[in-house]
Design a protein around this nucleic acid. Structure first.
Lengths: 178, 178
DNA sequence: CCCGAGATATATCGGAGCAATATAGATTCA
DNA sequence: TGAATCTATATTGCTCCGATATATCTCGGG
């Protein structure tokens, strides 16, 4: 799966410009499990259009640069269906926070608690975004599935971290209590 | 955080060759939250050595190509400590499986169950690797923390998927039961 | 009323890193 | 004996990110 397929997936729901695709990925259900930058979205759209998988319509706007609204073609839908039916690559999870935690000897207990707090804030922010998605987007099976998955996983992480944080604080107060 | 810092982190535990670093990342505690390919590890080691953060020792081996065993220098440890103390980037999670699930209308119920089963196998494989790590590596705080985090998150995903799978199977049998 | 911050909108460039491949002898197992 | 698989280093093409450039509009605070 690459940015090309991602763009096809977003455009299968409705027309959008490159900018709107990026926003959609950042705020909508895609945001829970994927990222893409302008540096890959714009070239992908140009390429997909050249291959006849997308249509473009330049929407004139007073002042602002013309908006290029892309839409998916029948060939595009076929390409998307084919890509979706392929066996997906394994999930990838990258966490600098856990790298930090693994390097504990290099960290003071205070720095550790700070890092855990920061991670908890990030996780809760993600949970908030998921709740927001569930609230404002009309419910459909795929969206519910994905939101539920994200919520389950993030909630488990929050519970684990809160417990661990309590342990660290307790040990810091009574280091040789055991 | 980049591959350079990752290499320093692995070498802080003990000497290793590029090959051993890769293996360590794939099998040890690092595997739960990071990946790196030879295409980034070897250049990183060469660069780090040129900067005086690593030592090299060519270990002759009968037949096999000489093993280049790298070790961390004091400057390397300082660089690592500095990198670890910096505020980490947010976690990144990329899942083609969830992309598939979001594109449900393009998938048959059978294909969905297959995809869920595949995902469950992958998750259980990861859980097995974590259990293996906890079993064979001597326990230290950082390792326990990371393994526990991974276990909590993956277990939550498995529970969620098993429940969802049951729902899909039930709906397939009685589609208009509601 | 104006200024700065932020949103809208497209686009490019350098660099990071992955996946695949090349090479080559050793081991293992049928 | 022959095939996989393992140990070991290294390179290359490609994808993609992060930062930056550019230009205009909007909206709230001073």
């Amino acid at each position: 799966m690459n940015v090309r397929t991602l763009c096809l997936g977003v455009l299968a729901v409705g027309e959008a410009s490159g900018y709107e695709i990026k926003k959609g990925i950042e705020e909508g259900h895609f945001s829970h499990f994927i990222e893409a930058s302008y540096g890959s979205i714009y070239p992908a759209l140009i390429q997909l259009h050249a291959e006849g998988l997308l249509t473009v319509r330049a929407e004139e706007q007073t002042g602002k640069p013309d908006k290029k609204v892309y839409g998916i073609t029948e060939a595009g839908r076929r390409a998307l269906a084919k890509a979706v039916s392929e066996v997906p690559a394994k999930d990838k999870f990258k966490s600098e926070f856990l790298f930090q935690m693994l390097m504990q000897p290099l960290l003071s207990p205070g720095a550790m608690v700070n890092a855990i707090d920061k991670q908890l804030r990030d996780l809760n922010e993600d949970l908030g975004r998921i709740a927001e998605c569930q609230r404002k987007e009309e419910p459909h099976a795929g969206g519910q599935f994905v939101a539920g998955y994200g919520k389950a996983v993030l909630t488990a992480a929050v519970i684990y971290l809160e417990q661990k944080k309590a342990e660290v604080l307790h040990e810091a107060v009574a280091p040789a209590a055991e």
